[in-house]
Design a protein around this nucleic acid. Structure first.
Length: 119
DNA sequence: AAGTTGACTATTT
DNA sequence: AAAATAGCCAACT
């Protein structure tokens, strides 16, 4: 129908994110490298995403929720949905996901996943 | 057709 | 730690 379906690959990827795990916008843009996409485009895609897409499992780099800058209510909804799925939030931070534990590493069946995260 | 905007991110103040 | 800057590129004015 519409050309907006260029986001289909993004939706397809997000749909594969298991409950209790999250990915970052940048990570999605990187995984779907088959198409020219930036983290911003992923955000735009999520905004118009179909209901069968678990948009809440896509968070900002470092585990924060950039959505809150525009829609505080939506941010709280996202946090609630994630906690309901078992995603752990850092106790110290305002609204930050414990990425070291909850970020989804697709097909990371290697011996070590070596999570490198700095703040 | 040209300018603005934004569910981003990395860098720099 | 928080705010401003600079790239990003499709969608919207």
């Amino acid at each position: 129908m519409e050309e907006r379906d260029i986001y289909e690959p993004v939706y397809a990827f997000v749909r594969t994110v298991p409950s209790g795990k999250v990915v970052t916008y940048g990570q999605v843009a990187d995984m779907v490298s088959g198409v020219s996409l930036t983290a911003r485009q992923v955000g735009a895609a999520m905004f118009v995403a179909p209901k069968d897409v678990p948009w809440q499992r896509v968070v900002g780099a470092g585990g924060h929720l950039p959505i809150g800058k525009r829609s505080p209510e939506m941010k709280m909804l996202q946090r609630r949905l994630l906690e309901q799925e078992g995603v752990v939030f850092l106790p110290d931070a305002e609204d930050r996901v414990d990425m070291a534990r909850c970020q989804w590493l697709p097909d990371a069946s290697g011996p070590a996943q070596g999570s490198l995260f700095e703040e």
